[in-house]
Design a protein around this nucleic acid. Structure first.
Lengths: 242, 242
DNA sequence: CAAGTGTTTTTGTATGACAAATAAAAATAG
DNA sequence: CTATTTTTATTTGTCATACAAAAACACTTG
């Protein structure tokens, strides 16, 4: 019985899914591994088989497992995992060290976001531009670091929205995790956000002008700035959030 | 009772999840809509509540639904949907028309893949390069169109692998769907694949030389070629697959 | 009118019983 | 002795039933 593992919050099958999911992402059950069967999980966590099955259905839906009669549930190869799923990404994040998480999210953002702002510059509606401007304003008004991160997430989500491509939306989760993990690197109480806001403004200005090229380079600068923060303020004198 | 809807293949809860998932993606249940409760689903499809619940857990895991006691299951806003999930993407694909699916996947590829090949050029291991070369060979040897598509999918997956960024892996599903949807546009029995293979070779050559810039532009040409196919061979004289 | 209280609806959880699938072992045929 | 078929055992799949817990809503009461 692993009562300790039963995390606070939520119902049994969700907690179970989370616990098993975390253990898979942490590498305790490698791809190809045969998991304990349903009855055994029930014994291990002291829950009913119903709850176990529902948890397993959740994990199967996220591409982590594959169940077959007489076999059991096997961990799927990593390239089947829905890493851009909210939960899976969170489990992944807490399974690896902060620096390599930051490194791979930044690498991903560097691929995606310049393309996103180009699309946004070309295809944004007037309304989407307004939302973008409003997000900018929210960033300016933010008083605490969590507020700023929230506003920043809102900004990048508005960007994603403005790109008008549904297939790109799943990236919002990645950006959200990237930005809130960035929180780890901003130990100062009152970070200077002037520069970050300016960089964001540059992006919006270019999008307003429907200038894709300028928008792209502005976004690259913004990501460079974030990299600088992660690198530990070695290349910049003031800490910013982006 | 909607016995007709019970698609062939698979177990009850999977079929149910697929059916409900398709209906959501088709827009029958808009975001924010309250679905029938579990008992009702059971009556509608003539299955047990257990099966309904497992199906709902699957859909919830994919970000399509949110269930709460006394409320029921509500369809989540679109930006919560895991569109890059294998099943969801498939449902999405069959819910919209071919041309707009092709358009948005190509748009997405145009953002992602140039970045991917740059990473691959910089970070690929010797072994990953070998796999890439082998995929190329498989494309050359392919006799039927399905074989070619399979080999092509293998190639682009190898590319993704060579980029060495786990967060990019979920894109494999998108590329896979994009390429196999391309199948719709290749009505000819024996498409000329010479040009396509050459374009793929250019990419591999640049990656072998660790030349990121050349790799990027080679990939862009490759995607241009695919666009030409979709456009209906207006700008090219020979049909190719890519 | 406000605050708390109860009612009712829906999901959440547990248990028990079989069905179906299938890998592995055993029996059988060639 | 090998190949094929049959049996068996294990695990997931499915169903039915019962009760618990959460929470919106109506209602009562101060």
């Amino acid at each position: 019985m692993v009562k300790q593992r039963e995390k606070r919050g939520g119902n049994v099958h969700d907690r179970l899914a989370r616990s098993i999911g975390e253990r898979i992402l942490a590498g305790e059950f490698a791809p190809g591994t045969l998991l304990p069967n349903e009855a055994e999980w029930g014994r291990i966590y002291d829950v009913s088989r119903t709850a176990v099955r529902e948890a397993i259905k959740t994990l199967t839906g996220k591409g982590l497992l594959l169940s077959r009669p007489k076999i059991g549930s096997r961990v799927e190869p990593r390239d089947r995992w829905s890493l851009l799923d909210r939960d899976v990404l969170l489990w992944h994040r807490s399974a690896i060290d902060r620096r390599s998480f930051a490194a791979s999210t930044q690498e991903a953002r560097r691929i995606i976001e310049p393309g996103i702002v180009e699309l946004a510059a070309k295809k944004r509606s007037a309304e989407q531009l307004e939302i973008l401007v409003a997000s900018l304003e929210a960033m300016r008004k933010a008083k605490s670091v969590p507020d700023l991160v929230a506003a920043d997430v809102g900004f990048h989500n508005a960007l994603l929205q403005a790109a008008n491509n549904a297939l790109m939306m799943p990236f919002g989760i990645l950006i959200e995790q990237a930005l809130s993990s960035l929180f780890d690197y901003t130990t100062q109480r009152n970070p200077k956000i002037g520069i970050a806001v300016k960089l964001h403004e540059d992006v919006v200005r270019a999008i307003a002008a429907q200038d894709a090229k300028t928008a792209r380079s502005a976004m690259i600068k913004l990501i460079d700035d974030t990299d600088a923060i992660i690198a530990g303020t070695k290349s910049r004198s003031k800490w910013t959030i982006c």
